[in-house]
Design a protein around this nucleic acid. Structure first.
Lengths: 130, 130
DNA sequence: GTCTATGTATAAAA
DNA sequence: TTTTATACATAGAC
């Protein structure tokens, strides 16, 4: 890239190093975004500069979520709490939403006043829910 | 890169997508290594393929260490997350339950056929929910 | 995988 | 910064 080959070792000149860091950091993050979009992958990049400053990128959600997914993948649950509780909460939310759908369907049916929107079976199911 | 421009959107052809994923993934990891060496930075890259397979790179130590450093940097106690998220979930559950109550009340009213169980105001509120 | 033509990234310079 | 010359990455074809 550019005029002259690059030795794969730490750039000693601090100015050159800083300039290269900025340029390549931008390039790396761009490439990561592209890969994520083109291939539908979830990617996280974390960069700590030599001076300790953080640069990060997370495609598809937050870095925290990605870290959790990473933890899940690499080995069993590193912490039971964060694994079990959100699962239960999500499940409960899902069930509640389903119930709401059923109730809404029932109401639409009642207001509409016709059976065309609801089968007898669905009506029976509805009875259970109110 | 290569013969022809690339649209920055998901590659639909699964074969092309897989090939591109392999090539660009290798490229991304190489770039990350180079940046780390040239500029003395600590870098972590996590890639979940569309199929859920994990690819990772951590320069200067393990990914776990990097994640810990990240957690330290982003905001002291990582214990914040497990506190906030369950709160949101509980809030959502509460709201969903409230909605269910409203819908159930509406259904009881409709089936009962009388206004005695529901004020006009409550009826108006109900309308919003279905 | 390997091979190329071509598009990109970027080192150096301005 | 912006420009430029080159090295590099990679899409498409085997």
């Amino acid at each position: 890239m550019g005029r002259g080959r690059v030795q794969m070792k730490r750039i000693e000149n601090p100015v050159h190093r800083q300039v290269t860091f900025c340029k390549r950091r931008a390039g790396l993050l761009k490439k990561a975004k592209e890969l994520s979009v083109l291939c539908d992958a979830e990617i996280g990049v974390v960069i700590f500069s030599a001076h300790g400053k953080l640069y990060e990128l997370a495609t598809k959600g937050t870095m925290q979520e990605l870290i959790e997914r990473y933890g899940k993948y690499t080995g069993g649950p590193p912490a039971d709490e964060p694994m079990v509780e959100p699962m239960d909460a999500k499940k409960e939310i899902e069930m509640l939403k389903q119930e709401i759908e059923i109730l809404q369907k029932g109401l639409r049916y009642m207001f509409g006043g016709g059976c065309e929107y609801m089968s007898l079976n669905e009506l029976l199911v509805l009875e259970i829910h109110f």
